[in-house]
């Protein structure tokens, strides 16, 4: 787990600022960028996976039953999944905060 930037002492950085903890950007949650959120009607889902394929944020995961769920820690609410969903199973609605 990386510390916040302003808590590193100079000698705590790796030589050449190399980062060994790969993929640790996931510690940064982009979900709070959202102003709209996807709402899924799982009844309409045909399990085509286009939403998963087209998600720039890799925020959509496949479930056991072949349908998909949204990781709201990362979903930025761009709406690509809703626009590209052929059967119209995904709707974007205002995010309530």
């Amino acid at each position: 787990m990386a510390k916040p930037m302003d808590q590193y002492k100079w000698h705590e950085l790796n030589v050449g600022c190399v980062i060994e903890e790969i993929g640790n950007a996931s510690e940064y949650k982009t979900g709070d960028w959202r102003s709209q959120k996807p709402v899924v009607n799982q009844e309409k889902c045909i399990k085509c996976g286009l939403c998963w394929l087209f998600c720039p944020d890799a925020a959509i995961e496949q479930m056991e039953d072949g349908r998909y769920r949204w990781n709201m820690d990362y979903c930025k609410g761009c709406g690509i999944c809703a626009t590209e969903c052929k059967p119209g199973a995904i709707k974007m609605v205002e995010e309530e905060r």
Binding site: A25, E27, Y28, K29, W33, C78
Partner: peptide, 10 residues
């Protein structure tokens, strides 16, 4: 992985 700072819909 998720957590990058690309603009929405990039």
């Amino acid at each position: 992985v998720p957590g990058h700072r690309a603009c929405q819909g990039c």
